[in-house]
Structure formats: C-alpha cells, structure tokens
Design a protein around this nucleic acid. Structure first.
Length: 120
DNA sequence: TAGGTGACGCGGT
DNA sequence: CACCGCGCCACCT
C-alpha cells in the first residue's frame, strides 16, 4: 500500500539527524521499498503530510541537491544545510562520505519494529 | 483506460 | 572517470 510508504517516509524523515543527509534510495530502502527512490522525491514534492519534513536533508546518490529547484526560493536547501554545518560545495554537492546519515542495521530493525507496532 | 513523467539509481561502454 | 540507456513505479492527465 502506498499509504504505508508515505507514513513511513514521514516518520523516517523526521529521524534524520541535523547535520546529516540521507539519499532517496536510502530512505526508500528503510521504507521497505528499495525500488521506490523516485517516489521519495515525489512524496516530498507533493508534501502530503501535515508535518513538514526536513526535505533539505535529502540528496541524491551522488550527493547533489537535486531537489533544490523546487524549494520556495533558490538556494534555500543549501542555506539550511550550511546552517546545520553540512558543507555544500559550489556545485551544490555534499560529501556523502562525511555527511551521509549512517543508519545502522540496528536502526533499521528498530524502525521495522516501530512500523509493525504502529500498524504501517 | 493508456500513456507520459520524474527531488532516482545502476550497470554497461 | 563521464556519459548514456534502461529499469523502476506511483501519480497525473
């Protein structure tokens, strides 16, 4: 069910620590749908959830701020990341080696348990 | 109902 | 490396 996907995404999104970034594929994987990286971006754009997600912490697999263009003002995503201490270079790219949210296997399993408990 | 689209990602050249 | 093509799948028209 797609509904589950969005609720999970919302939950996980809020769990991304400040000063770190996550990739679309990474979030899709944590949501239990490894092939739905595109839907992550789609969901953020549609912004169905009531609670605002930290969308600025989501980058693509190469570290580029691929969603920057859809923010209300140009450069907003970059600005927010820099405000958190994330280094963004002139090409709108971050070093994933340094700043990617290193979600451990335990974290993932814990999330799975929470989802099961909450019913989505 | 059918076809097009895209805040993606991977594998081949 | 960089570039290109194709697979992916929920949404929208």
């Amino acid at each position: 069910m797609t509904f589950d996907f969005y609720k999970r995404l919302e939950f996980i999104g809020q769990r991304i620590p400040a000063g770190k970034v996550a990739t679309y594929g990474q979030l899709a994987l944590l949501c239990g749908k490894p092939r739905n990286a595109r839907q992550v971006g789609y969901a953020l754009r549609a912004n169905k959830s009531q609670e605002p997600l930290p969308a600025h912490r989501i980058v693509n697999g190469k570290g580029f701020l691929s969603g920057a263009g859809t923010f209300s003002s140009p450069g907003l995503q970059k600005k927010r990341l820099q405000a958190e201490g994330v280094v963004v270079d002139l090409n709108n790219q971050v070093d994933l080696k340094l700043f990617q949210w290193d979600c451990s296997l335990d974290d993932a399993l814990e999330l799975d348990d929470i989802f099961k408990e909450l019913g989505f």
